[in-house]
Design a protein around this nucleic acid. Structure first.
Lengths: 207, 207
DNA sequence: ACCTCGCCATGACAGGTGTCATGGCGAGGT
DNA sequence: ACCTCGCCATGACACCTGTCATGGCGAGGT
């Protein structure tokens, strides 16, 4: 009971229990950091954060239910005192910009050395922003997604390899319209095939 | 210097430094486990293991250079006293069977709770096999890959969304032959599109 | 020797795909 | 009011794809 207020209270959200526990163990080694909550889905983030009032929320991007980016946006409104640190497997340019738009204070990739994570937690807690410079440059270079909402939706639906007719049926559109959106998306991504467009949009974090 | 031989010496191989360090921290909390080496590529596994002679090697499947499955096979010959525990993100049926064929003693997915990992390390070290029962059942149900080497190669090449002509050029084959292999792969996977066949083969661990 | 099976190839055909021109509708900006 | 832009749709056209029949070659099993 004698932590004199200098301890950083952290919430960890990651869908993989093993990674979640391991990160908790890693952060727990630091004397000035305490892991006060662990959740495995995006939908659990806000309720839990409301209950335990953490100083920093460490959110993975890909989670079942709600992704880390959406959770970050909701968390910003629900618990304004809690600063958000996004931690993800893929350093996709689009993720960074979307994370910043969602009010995140920091962004670290899982390729980074462990010390960098604990440093990021401390810096975020003290009000600084944490961004990988290389990723920031890449993000600025590739820019924001030029795809419209509908194009993204069509691309997402076509992702699992269905035919145009399937996509049209799912989205309640004409086949011709689907083909138009796909054609437009292919042109904007610089791809030459629907599958390639999906792949490119994914690696750029536009999905 | 007074660990009296009861300590389990572990090597960790994972391409993500953060996860690697976190897992090391997690295992390091246990008094009977000591992490003696960390590597980030598949090619570093065997040389490092030869040098430090670990009791257990904890290998991720997807790594740059050489994947964990191939590393496991080489490790079995190079350091027979070291038992292999495969630890991966995806619980794909094909991974399990290939891991067992490569001489692995255990297989855990990263969805599992942290205690399960440390338990797996102990069991593997004591000579037992560790396999998730649900995954084992799924593995037996889906069976081994019905795809021939060439079909897999064509499917792999077609994965990034290239056209038939592209694949044919890369593999030095006729376009017709590529189409035949694709058609066969589509039939065997039960898919209706090339893209769907790629997706299904991937989720089953046949890739 | 025979058969089976994987591999490569060709040719043909139906159907799916990507592109383009054209048009209508509604929202937002000047 | 005007223009721009996203969205939906139709129709037409060239091209790509998936399927099938057919055949040749070499390896391995009986």
């Amino acid at each position: 009971m004698w932590e004199r207020g200098a301890v950083i209270r952290v919430l960890i959200a990651d869908d993989q229990a093993l990674v979640r526990g391991a990160m908790a163990a890693l952060l727990g080694l630091e004397v000035d950091i305490e892991v006060v909550a662990e959740v495995g889905t995006g939908t659990d983030v806000v309720p839990t954060a409301r209950a335990v009032q953490p100083d920093v929320a460490l959110l993975d991007v890909q989670m079942p239910g709600m992704d880390g980016l959406a959770a970050a946006a909701e968390l910003r409104d629900a618990v304004p005192t809690c600063r958000v640190l996004i931690c993800t497997t893929f350093g996709r340019p689009g993720y960074l910009s979307r994370a910043m738009a969602a009010g995140a204070a920091g962004f670290v990739v899982k390729d980074a050395p462990p010390e960098q994570l604990v440093e990021a937690v401390r810096r975020v807690h003290s009000g600084l922003r944490v961004v990988d410079p290389a990723l920031a440059a890449e993000s600025l270079a590739s820019g924001a997604s030029p795809l419209t909402d509908r194009e993204l939706e069509v691309l997402r639906t076509a992702r699992d390899g269905g035919t145009v007719a399937d996509v049209a049926k799912v989205l309640h559109l004409s086949e011709g319209t689907v083909r138009n959106h796909l054609s437009s998306a292919i042109g904007k991504t610089g791809a030459r095939t629907r599958a390639e467009a999906v792949r490119l949009a994914e690696t750029r974090g536009w999905l």
